[in-house]
Write a protein that binds this DNA or RNA. Structure first.
Lengths: 225, 225
DNA sequence: TGTACATCAGTGAACGCGCGTTCACTGATGTAC
DNA sequence: TGTACATCAGTGAACGCGCGTTCACTGATGTAC
């Protein structure tokens, strides 16, 4: 009990700092994230923040992990809410949830999926949270009884995929895994183009376009229905 | 003749500045591009650069346009070199050229396709150069006699695509255009994941993976052969 | 071909601002007695 | 319940560095005569 109250306060304040930091991202991007700016917005001295994050990079890491986890749990929740739908519609529901999150958290999307931050190297602790999103897609594909006979197999030479993928998804064939990966990077490509302004002269109605595109990706994944 | 020599020198020096600037991008990213750093590397005073670029943003714009044009002409050359191949192989050749350029120009790739640069708004003059790359893909699809009957049409409601696309590609159906757009964003997704490190734990051999993925995208585009 | 002269390239100091991080410190918090 | 005390939160000045941009200036370039 002695420590817990102190620790609670610490945790709450750290959350508050991250909240303000997320707002700062909008103005100056990840590369320009500044502890002094955050302190200014909180009406505190910049040195105060060092009680909570030993360094600017530590704060960045915390923001990155939070963003992956937030997006990851959003995807997982959307999947659970769609359990009774067809595999295709499960997939579409998850994709739409991912897109909604991305539109509402543009700066965090850029933080985790945009250009690497100069002079910052993401530590290993970011890997597991980052994997949550594609794992949801893989689980849908697995339980969705892939039926890819229409398309023929993806001609993937052996050992192209990382061995760790096989450990994570032991009952999936390389063909299935590569289809999932391609689906995930295709979804990301759609979101990135939309959010970073590369559809300005080509797509007029983003919602509808995304929806069609995602159904098409589901079809290519071989999902039922 | 009076002006031409002076103008030549000016142009040559501007090119030199951009060359040094491209090297700076590697260390500090687009957001951190600094005229003072460029000047330091050239052993000149920072104020000297203002003879050539009125502002830091003007230099950024020049770099962005150059990057789009460089990548665009790379894609166009690859297409021309592959004229005699099948549509699918033309497509694959262009994609591989795009990937090679991206791997050799990681910083410029991030400059044009990465997170938006804070407090910088790209002017209209970047739009046309940016369009060159997807236009090559569209031309291949058009001349490659799309055969999408295996897949059924993409169910795209009317007016989802921008009207300007139709003007640019008057003889393409919305179905064809949306397939091209989806192909382009899928390719971009692959490149972005590879370059920004999101394949570290899943793809072990990037060359082979990209190759398979791109064949698959060509198939989905309905390209012959 | 030689020279006077305008034009332009490049300089260096300055303005006003920003940053991450450290350090000795004050003052509040919360607990053990 | 009251108080002494340790612990921790937050301060403010400082270090050493960075930036974009302006401005009056020197000195080289290249041309017109």
């Amino acid at each position: 009990m002695t420590l817990s109250k102190v620790q609670e306060n610490r945790a709450a304040k750290a959350e508050q700092i991250k909240g303000v930091a997320r707002h700062c991202l909008a103005n100056d991007g990840a590369a320009g994230l500044s502890l002094r700016e955050i302190a200014r917005r909180m009406n505190e001295s910049s040195s105060a923040l060092y009680r909570y994050f030993p360094t600017r990079d530590a704060l960045l890491t915390a923001l990155i992990i939070d963003a992956y986890n937030d997006l990851g749990s959003t995807a997982e929740r959307a999947w659970q809410a769609a359990q009774r739908k067809t595999p295709t519609n499960q997939f579409v529901a998850v994709c739409k949830a991912i897109r909604s999150w991305s539109l509402e958290h543009r700066d965090e999307f850029a933080l985790i999926f945009g250009s690497p931050i100069p002079n910052y190297a993401a530590p290993e602790s970011t890997i597991a949270p980052a994997a949550r999103i594609p794992l949801v897609l893989a689980h849908i594909a697995r339980s969705g009884t892939i039926d890819a006979s229409n398309f023929g197999p993806v001609s993937l030479p052996p050992r192209v995929l990382d061995a760790r993928l096989g450990e994570l998804l032991p009952d999936m064939s390389p063909d299935q895994m590569s289809r999932c990966l391609m689906a995930w990077s295709a979804i990301f490509g759609l979101l990135s183009f939309e959010l970073f302004g590369h559809f300005v002269n080509s797509v007029a109605k983003s919602d509808e376009y995304f929806s069609s595109a995602v159904y098409e990706i589901a079809r290519r994944l071989g999902l039922k229905s």
